[in-house]
Amino acid sequence: MLIIDCPYCGERDETEFSYGGEAGIARPQHPESLTDAEWADYLFMRSNPRGPHRELWNHAQGCRRWFVAVRDTVTYRFSETAALQAGASGDAE
């Protein structure tokens, strides 16, 4: 079972959290101007890398805040967790 360092509450067991998928998937500003393929890319396509992965987590059984984490998809180790910056879909950049 993972230990996840919630930026607001500190280290807690994985069971308190829920997973929110890849971070940085910003909702398009003008969906109506996109082609079906472009919209499908936003809707369905995710990067699925081997190695470090920026993703969203929610401390669902705790403070209920969403935050960004970098987790290695091979070792499952978290190298970083951080509060969301103002910006789209948890993109801290």
Partner: peptide, 14 residues
């Protein structure tokens, strides 16, 4: 509630 919170926090924090 979780769905609403997710959009509020991740997409429209302003």
């Amino acid at each position: 509630l979780a769905w609403m919170e997710k959009w509020l926090q991740t997409e429209w924090p302003q």
